[in-house]
């Protein structure tokens, strides 16, 4: 069995191949419009790609994901570091944080649209508000786990604040930043679509809503497929290389 010898990559492909095969079999035996098989979906994918505006809506959604992801990460890291370092601020904000963690995404989305109008700012804002508490919790753990002994090296050798931050402090947060990015991306993908469904007239979420009204299952699966591809590419070409680059010193 040569496929297994090639290691992880072939196993990854194998699991996807088995999934597609099962899907095709199920679609074949059900023979129902509600479950189009992978063949129909991939030909539909081609149609949407070439003749329709799949790329446009996908790129709009990606922009929103990127914008809210970086905003949430920056704000969350900032607050998380402060809360991890100052116990008083931590206990002052802790209850708010718990509330923020547990408020349903739908509530913040509706409120943002009501308060700020059906616009881009409200959309991004809603996603960021949903994501920031999760980042804060992760980064706060990281800030609490900062190795005091390494900081002493920085102090006694009189490193500049900038160098101390870049070379001694932030690297200790890397594992936590990576964890926050991972969980952050998956959460943001999901919320952005809901935000688009409820209040935007472009993006994948908006399109899915439209297809839902027409019961166009094939198109819904086409967009899902496009989405899955983007997620796989991001993970393999962006997240994992960055992660292994940042942790190459571990043995």
């Amino acid at each position: 069995m040569p496929t297994f010898k090639n290691g992880e990559l072939s196993i990854k492909f194998l699991s996807i191949a088995v999934f597609i095969l099962l899907w095709q079999l199920l679609a074949y035996f059900l023979n129902n419009d509600l479950l189009p098989g992978p063949l129909i979906v991939s030909s539909g994918f081609w149609d949407h790609l070439v003749e329709d505006d799949l790329l446009f809506h996908l790129s709009i959604t990606l922009m929103r994901v990127a914008a809210s992801f970086f905003l949430a990460l920056i704000i969350g890291t900032f607050v998380g570091v402060i809360m991890g370092n100052y116990p008083k601020i931590d206990s002052a904000l802790d209850s708010l944080l718990i509330i923020g963690l547990n408020i349903p995404a739908l509530v913040t989305i509706i409120l943002c649209y009501v308060w700020f109008g059906l616009n881009e700012f409200a959309a991004i804002c809603a996603v960021v508000v949903n994501k920031v508490p999760v980042v804060i919790v992760t980064i706060r753990e990281g800030a609490r786990a900062i190795d005091h002994k390494l900081m002493q090296v920085a102090y006694t050798f009189k490193l500049s604040r900038r160098t101390m931050f870049q070379k001694v402090y932030i690297p200790q947060l890397y594992p936590y930043l990576i964890a926050a990015s991972r969980s952050g991306l998956s959460l943001i993908w999901k919320i952005v679509l809901v935000v688009e469904l409820l209040g935007r007239s472009d993006g994948v979420g908006f399109k899915l809503g439209t297809f839902f009204q027409f019961f166009d299952i094939t198109s819904i699966l086409v967009y899902t497929l496009a989405f899955a591809l983007v997620v796989l590419v991001t993970e393999n070409c962006l997240v994992q290389p960055i992660e292994s680059r940042l942790s190459r010193w571990r043995l």
Partner: peptide, 24 residues
């Protein structure tokens, strides 16, 4: 110019040997 050598080596594990020296 003051140096301090601690009980533990206290090197930054994410920096190479050279970068660790350059750091200070």
């Amino acid at each position: 110019r003051r140096s301090y050598m601690f009980q533990e080596p206290r090197l930054m594990p994410w920096l190479t040997v050279k970068e660790n020296i350059k750091l200070v």
